[in-house]
Simulated scan of single mutants.
Amino acid sequence: MSIQLELDGPIARITLARPEALNAFTYQAYGELADAVIQANAAPRVSVIVIKGTGRAFSTGGDLKQINDAFLANDRQRIAEVTQLFATNSLRAFTSLESSPKTIVGAINGTCEAGGVGLLLCTDLSVAVRSAVFRVPEGLVGLADPFIPARLPARVGIAAAKRLLLTAERIDADSALEMGLVNEVCEAEDFDRRVEELVADLLEISPATRHLYKRVVNVAQLPFDADIMLRGNMGADAQEGVAAFAARKKPDWPSARSS
């Protein structure tokens, strides 16, 4: 299992457990995440869900090896199938988080990139270790993410969102805090304690009130458009970008040659 769920009284702890792959999500793992959130939602005693990675990363997003394997097969039907599975399962995972009646805490224990940032944006509150770094690198490999552009501008402002989306700039935890991407940054030795203190603070507040406040805040969110992933990730730039990433070379974008 890539996703582990532990029910601990009023707390559900979801652990991203692929440290050898920097907790990258296969399409199966996105499905497992959705299942874990739905299971936690159904637990009547659970009031707070904490999501944390293992190893040195929170998550680096979608598993590019799984995507590249589909391209290498040179099978258009398989590429469409894998892209559809990523779109469907990631949409299900992120929607389950935002619609959850529980309060979601992101414990950002390390590198947070691509779909990891998307996951962070679907949490309600977050604590990041100071050594964490953040990046939206999909454009470097010609892929398109439908979730981050729909949530990032409201969190950090349009100017900062465009900077992160269009340049794939890597930022540190203090910069993420300054722009409002995370709620708190702390040293590694204080990280677990601060996460637990935040959870304890949440548990002092009425669960019903937290749920209603979350509903009111989230009602203004833009809908996710999973078709963006389908259009972008089946294009020639995606095939070139992912192959170049696997070969550790610079991509030669087909869309630049045709423009």
Score class of each variant (00 low, 15 high):
A150Y: 06
G110Y: 01
E240H: 12
L166M: 08
F134T: 00
A17F: 09
A80W: 06
R56G: 13
G235E: 11
I228D: 08
V156N: 02
A226N: 02
I104Q: 05
V195I: 15
E169A: 12
C186Q: 05
L143Q: 05
L181R: 03
D201K: 15
S206Y: 11
F86H: 07
R130H: 06
D145K: 06
E169W: 00
G118Q: 02
A34E: 07
V199L: 07
G106H: 01
V105Y: 06
R194A: 02
S126I: 04
V129P: 01
D201P: 02
P153S: 08
D35G: 13
G116V: 00
D237S: 14
L202W: 09
F191L: 14
V217I: 15
V46Q: 08
A188W: 12
R194Q: 10
K65W: 07
I67E: 04
H211Y: 04
N109R: 11
S126P: 04
P223M: 06
N74W: 01
L91T: 14
L33H: 07
C122A: 11
F245W: 13
P10Y: 07
A238I: 12
K250L: 04
V217L: 13
N74E: 15
T209G: 05
P146V: 15
I108H: 05
P254M: 09
L222P: 01
L230F: 15
Q66N: 15
I108S: 05
D75A: 05
R45D: 15
I228S: 08
V195T: 13
I14H: 05
D192P: 09
E138A: 07
L22H: 08
Q77R: 15
F86V: 15
A107S: 10
A238N: 00
R231G: 04
N109G: 11
P207S: 04
A244T: 11
L22S: 05
